[in-house]
Amino acid sequence: MSSTTQQPDLADLKDGAAGPLAIVVSQCVEGSSLVEPHSHGRGQLLGVWRGLLTLGTEFGKWLVPNVHAVWIPPGQLHWASAHGQVDTWSIYVQSGAGEGLPERPATLRISALLRETVRRLESLNSEPAGAMRGLLELVVINEIRSLPIEELSLPMPTSPSLMKIAQELLAQPADDRSLDAWAGLANISPRTLNRRFPLETGYSLGTWRQRARLLRGLELLAEGRSVTTVALELGYSNISAFIALFKRTFGATPTQYMR
């Protein structure tokens, strides 16, 4: 565990209405690991203090850098994988407090207030319920409701043939193979690839690849890499083109966004 405070009874997570209004759990994971598919009776806001976490649901894949968190509604089947050392935090919210919260998995840009309130609330895990805890729980719930939703998901293909392409691009975002080459990898025709990829993901192959690069760019920026280093690693020979694309997508330059 990443905290010396006593962790709450995780049995409360099975019953979405039992226990405190909000439960904070932190964990430290060493080395690559996989959390098998599961669900909770409570809603869960999952984030990281440090490292990289990948979250998957039936709706797609989310990459979680430390400036964002993913909201998982009660009962939503999900799984996760960690890469290297990852310090995670989760807020488990009573199912009855879900009014105003997203009904489907969503990426939220976390605030400084939420971050500090989570730390303070976690420090009270070993203490009896009291007025201070009640106030902090309400702050957490209302702050989650107010956080902006950002389109940081990456819908994954459903067929094995197109999944091969997606996995290759996730492993090597700078891979710039032609449409014919990708179609050959999937053992389908370029025309079929052009038709099926948008049907399965909602994006053309080119747009999906661009999206995968930008999400990977967010991870690298969150790790402290420079904008130039990130752009080159993602396969952009023109740094200005990467910055312009980033700004069109997220409404701010990489430097402004990370601030």
Rank of each mutant, 00 (worst) to 15 (best):
G47I: 15
W62R: 06
K61A: 15
A171M: 08
Y203I: 12
S90H: 04
A181R: 12
G134H: 07
L169A: 09
T5H: 05
L234F: 05
K164T: 14
P73S: 08
L162M: 10
Y92T: 08
Q210R: 13
A82N: 12
Y257T: 01
L170T: 05
T54R: 14
K247L: 02
A82E: 13
P148W: 07
L46N: 09
R225S: 11
R248A: 11
P198L: 12
Q6P: 03
A171Q: 02
S237D: 14
S33C: 03
N142Q: 11
D180H: 10
A231W: 02
F246P: 01
D176L: 04
A80M: 12
S26L: 10
R195Q: 10
R248C: 07
I188S: 02
L162V: 07
H83F: 10
A129T: 02
P198S: 05
P128F: 00
S153I: 11
G202C: 09
I110L: 10
V139D: 05
T88A: 01
G75E: 13
C28H: 15
G202W: 11
H40W: 04
S39W: 15
H68E: 15
L136V: 00
A252V: 02
E137T: 01
C28F: 11
T229R: 01
R109G: 06
A106F: 07
R196W: 12
G47F: 09
W89D: 05
W208H: 08
T192N: 07
A69S: 10
I149D: 12
W182G: 08
Q6E: 07
A22Y: 07
A69W: 04
T192K: 00
L147V: 13
E168N: 09
Q7C: 03
Q167C: 05
P128N: 05
M132C: 00
Q167S: 06
A241Q: 09
H78D: 10
A131N: 00
F197W: 08
G43P: 08
V86T: 12
A69Q: 04
D9N: 06
A212C: 12
D175F: 01
G217A: 06
E30N: 15
T117E: 04
P173F: 06
L52F: 14
V93L: 13
L214S: 05
L218V: 07
I72G: 04
P102C: 10
P105S: 11
H40N: 10
G47P: 13
P198R: 03
S226W: 05
I91S: 04
A174M: 08
R145N: 09
E151R: 14
W62A: 05
L13A: 09
E200V: 14
G217L: 07
A17N: 14
L185T: 13
T249I: 02
V70S: 08
A241M: 04
H38V: 13
I141H: 00
S3D: 09
L215F: 07
S240I: 10
L55I: 13
G224V: 11
S159A: 14
Y203F: 13
S159H: 10
T107H: 09
G98R: 14
